[in-house]
């Protein structure tokens, strides 16, 4: 009996079926695995190099007479030392203006598309427009802000920079807010109707607070994008060697400082550009990780 069984097993594994993995099939697998590992190797080289050079060049400049980078103004050509305190402030100011314009607008839009008009023509149109808007090249957002703010106000300003950034932040905020609103189960809405709440009461007192982690995620992601954007600020916020005194003046930002100082032929300015780049990248990575932990805290 046992002998018979082992015979049968042998039959199945060796003869009858042609199910063996032939050498050619094995080699195909090995070849492809090799190719893919090579892809990973080639991809890691430049991406790793960027991170390494950022740390190497950025850290060495940051810790060269330490707090000066954060407290001093950008140096003129051929002058040693200096920092970019005004650019840090400028980045914070332009990003804040961008957020103030885009967050209320984006959240209200998401409330319409999910709460009031889910699936109707207008919300489909909004979805389409959001997708198109997120694909608009950033330099075009800059030209738009130039056209509507700089030309009407007559000069380059922090406000114009904020308007340009808000165009780029809007789609991110709309999408994450929509995601958050959709994550709320319909029982909550039925409950709200059941206790006689109006839409406004329901949205502001129950639904929005529950969506807050998602909105916070959207805002942080949008800020992370805005902080690194250079092209939209080139002809809107421009640049300034000094501390900003008002919102209607040209203002320095970290990203434009990186651009100006990276293409300048002066070693000190170049090294400052590396330090600024390191700060921006660390900031963006910190904010992106923060955004992830925020979404992890779901209420429903």
């Amino acid at each position: 009996m046992t002998l018979n069984q082992s015979d049968k097993i042998q039959d199945i594994t060796s003869g009858g079926f042609d199910s063996e993995v032939t050498a050619a099939r094995k080699n195909f697998g090995k070849l492809m695995t090799g190719l893919v590992v090579a892809c990973v190797g080639i991809a890691i080289l430049p991406l790793g190099s960027i991170l390494f050079m950022l740390l190497k060049n950025g850290l060495s400049r940051l810790f060269l007479n330490f707090p000066s980078v954060f407290t001093e103004l950008p140096p003129p050509p051929l002058v040693e030392g200096g920092g970019f305190s005004n650019a840090i402030m400028g980045t914070i100011i332009t990003c804040t203006i961008g957020a103030l314009l885009s967050v209320p607008f984006g959240v209200l839009t998401a409330i319409y598309t999910v709460e009031f008009g889910r699936g109707n023509k207008l919300s489909q149109f909004v979805r389409f427009c959001t997708n198109v808007l997120s694909g608009v090249p950033s330099i075009i957002a800059g030209l738009f802000a130039y056209g509507i703010v700089v030309l009407t106000m007559g000069n380059f300003s922090a406000i114009a920079g904020g308007v340009a950034l808000s165009v780029l932040m809007m789609p991110i905020i709309i999408r994450t807010a929509e995601e958050g609103l959709k994550s709320i189960p319909s029982e909550v809405r039925q409950g709200l109707v059941g206790i006689g709440a109006t839409n406004f009461q329901g949205v502001t007192s129950v639904i929005l607070p529950a969506t807050l982690p998602f909105i916070a995620t959207g805002v942080t992601l949008a800020l992370a994008r805005a902080a690194g954007e250079t092209a939209p600020l080139l002809f809107t916020a421009l640049f300034s060697q000094f501390q900003a005194r008002s919102l209607s003046e040209p203002i320095a930002t970290l990203s434009v400082l990186i651009y100006n100082f990276a293409i300048a032929p002066y070693a000190n300015q170049n090294s400052l550009a590396w330090a600024a780049a390191l700060i921006i990248v660390v900031l963006i990575m910190f904010v992106s990780i923060l955004a992830r932990t925020l979404t992890a805290r779901k209420i429903y």
Binding site: L47, S49, M53, G228, T230, I258, Y259, A262, W274, I284
Partner: peptide
């Protein structure tokens, strides 16, 4: 990889000038 997608393009440009 996802975080690298968020690195600003001006940083890639600078890396290009000085390293690549």
């Amino acid at each position: 990889v996802e975080l690298l997608a968020a690195v600003p393009s001006v940083v890639y440009g600078m890396w290009g000038i000085f390293v690549f």
